[in-house]
Amino acid sequence: MENNSSSRPAIILLSGGLDSITVLALAKQQGFTCYALSFDYGQRHNAELEASRRIAKHYQVADHKIINLGLSAIGGSALTDARIDVPTSPQAGIPVTYVPARNTIFLAFALGWAEVVKAHDVFIGVNAVDYSGYPDCRPEFIKAFQDMANLGTKAGVEGHKIQIHTPLIALSKAEIIQQGLALGVDYADTVSCYSADIKGRACGVCDACRLRAAGFQSLGVADPTHYRPK
């Protein structure tokens, strides 16, 4: 791939999971100077933040910020409200693991930091194929946010257009893993599980675990995920 991005800053939304590490690896390969942004939003699977720290250090990002949001104050999701169980089987419609407006909030913070470091590129690992039915992972949402970003920022008004990059949006989980492996990504150091314990060990039965395991299985690649003893 021709590299026309050398030294250009970019904001990378880094959860510590499988998709976000792949996006970071892609952005690095394309020559961007990466600024990683993670969120402590009250999620029950907090071990992913430790994973994000390790990943950011490994990839030698220019800076890594972890923003405290506290979305547990409003709840409404199995990921932020301990009273709502994480489902262990597929659900019809939008599942209870959907966090209200999460990607809107995350992208808004990324947009603000992008203006500060004069970045015109924001990367997010949303996926419209294996995405569990979340409305804020669709191309329509990303386009709408990008349009808003270029209307409501100093950079956009002055002609420095913000681009929201979604390199995984049309890929299956297997295709994402395949791309990451080609880039040398070590998925053993990631946490995707909605109910990971404090050591980052996965439950193996939530939506995130099932999609992840199926991706490795379909490729015939050993699953490096650390699972809790049953």
Rank of each mutant, 00 (worst) to 15 (best):
S172I: 09
Q29I: 07
A144V: 06
I11E: 11
L14F: 03
L183E: 15
D197Q: 02
D130P: 06
A208F: 01
F145T: 11
F39K: 06
R228V: 03
A214F: 08
F39P: 03
A188P: 09
A155R: 02
Y131Q: 07
F123R: 07
A78H: 03
H120M: 11
F32H: 01
V221A: 10
N3M: 06
P135V: 04
N46W: 15
N3T: 13
S7I: 05
I142G: 07
G200S: 07
V205Q: 10
A144E: 04
Q179P: 03
I11F: 12
S132F: 02
L171N: 05
M1A: 14
A62K: 10
Q178T: 13
V126H: 12
Y59M: 00
M148V: 14
L181V: 04
M1C: 04
T104H: 12
T97E: 06
G184F: 02
T104E: 04
D223R: 09
C209I: 00
L79G: 02
D147A: 14
T190K: 12
L37G: 00
R102W: 14
G133C: 04
Y35Q: 05
I66C: 05
G200F: 09
N103H: 03
G220R: 15
T88G: 12
N46V: 09
S15A: 04
Y131H: 13
P87E: 08
F106P: 04
V185D: 13
K199E: 11
H226Y: 09
A47C: 00
L24Q: 15
T33Q: 09
A51Y: 03
F32I: 05
G159C: 10
A174N: 05
G184T: 02
F32S: 10
H226F: 10
Y35H: 08
S192Q: 01
K118F: 11
P95N: 09
C137R: 08
S192C: 10
I105S: 07
A114P: 13
M1L: 13
K28Y: 00
A56V: 13
V205N: 15
E2N: 12
K28W: 08
I105Q: 15
C206Q: 00
K154L: 08
A128T: 00
P229D: 14
K143A: 14
A182P: 10
Y227Q: 10
G112F: 02
R53S: 00
I11C: 08
N4L: 13
D63W: 03
V205K: 03
L13D: 07
D81P: 12
D40T: 13
K57C: 09
D85C: 09
C193E: 09
E48P: 06
G184N: 07
G42Q: 05
A10Y: 07
C203Q: 03
T33M: 14
S6K: 15
A222K: 06
F106W: 05
E50Y: 12
Q179M: 10
G215K: 03
I74S: 04
R54M: 13
T153A: 15
F123A: 02
I94H: 02
N3F: 07
K199Q: 08
S52V: 00
R210N: 06
S15G: 14
D85S: 13
A108C: 05
F141N: 01
G42R: 08
S218G: 05
F39M: 04
R210S: 13
Y194V: 07
C193L: 02
E2C: 12
N46H: 08
A202N: 10
L13G: 03
V221W: 09
G112L: 07
A56S: 08
T166W: 11
P135T: 05
A92I: 01
D40R: 11
S6D: 12
G156Y: 01
V99N: 04
